[in-house]
């Protein structure tokens, strides 16, 4: 569940663009698009106290997954580095024990039995919302 901005790059210059993610019924504002560094993530506190991790990849797609690392229990996935597999699956590697999680499906690449929750994420610009 990702949104790619086309043409890429334009968003980066449009600082009014905001990143949002869907948790439960409504969209939560994350931060300005410009706050996201390609290849990294940020941690987001959801209204109910849960935590999400929001990432921007090198092609300017945004993703959101649960921030808790299922292997250690620590809320750190937002601090991992992004990577892509040979077949183009974009993942984040946990900064603790380095397991990798597919950002589109939440599936752990080392252990398909393990998954993290995925949230819809989007970039909304100047009031006009696009999916």
């Amino acid at each position: 569940m990702t949104t790619t901005l086309e043409p890429p790059g334009t968003a980066a210059t449009t600082d009014t663009a905001r990143v949002e993610l869907l948790a439960g019924a409504d969209w939560t504002a994350v931060c300005d698009w410009s706050r996201l560094t390609p290849g990294r993530g940020v941690a987001v506190l959801l209204p109910d106290g849960r935590q999400a991790a929001v990432f921007r990849d090198s092609r300017d797609a945004v993703y959101a997954i649960a921030n808790q690392d299922p292997f250690t229990g620590a809320y750190v996935l937002s601090r991992g580095l992004l990577g892509a597999t040979a077949d183009g699956r974009v993942y984040v590697a946990s900064p603790l024990l380095k397991q990798r999680f597919d950002l589109s499906t939440g599936e752990c690449l080392e252990d398909s039995g393990v998954r993290v929750a995925v949230h819809p994420a989007r970039v909304a610009r100047a009031g006009v919302r696009r999916r």
Partner: peptide
């Protein structure tokens, strides 16, 4: 890293948690 990957990588795109650091 971007340029190194583009000019000398065998896999385009994102890079990974090994080559980045």
């Amino acid at each position: 890293h971007r340029r190194l990957l583009a000019e000398h990588g065998r896999l385009g795109g994102e890079g990974c948690e090994v080559c980045k650091p």
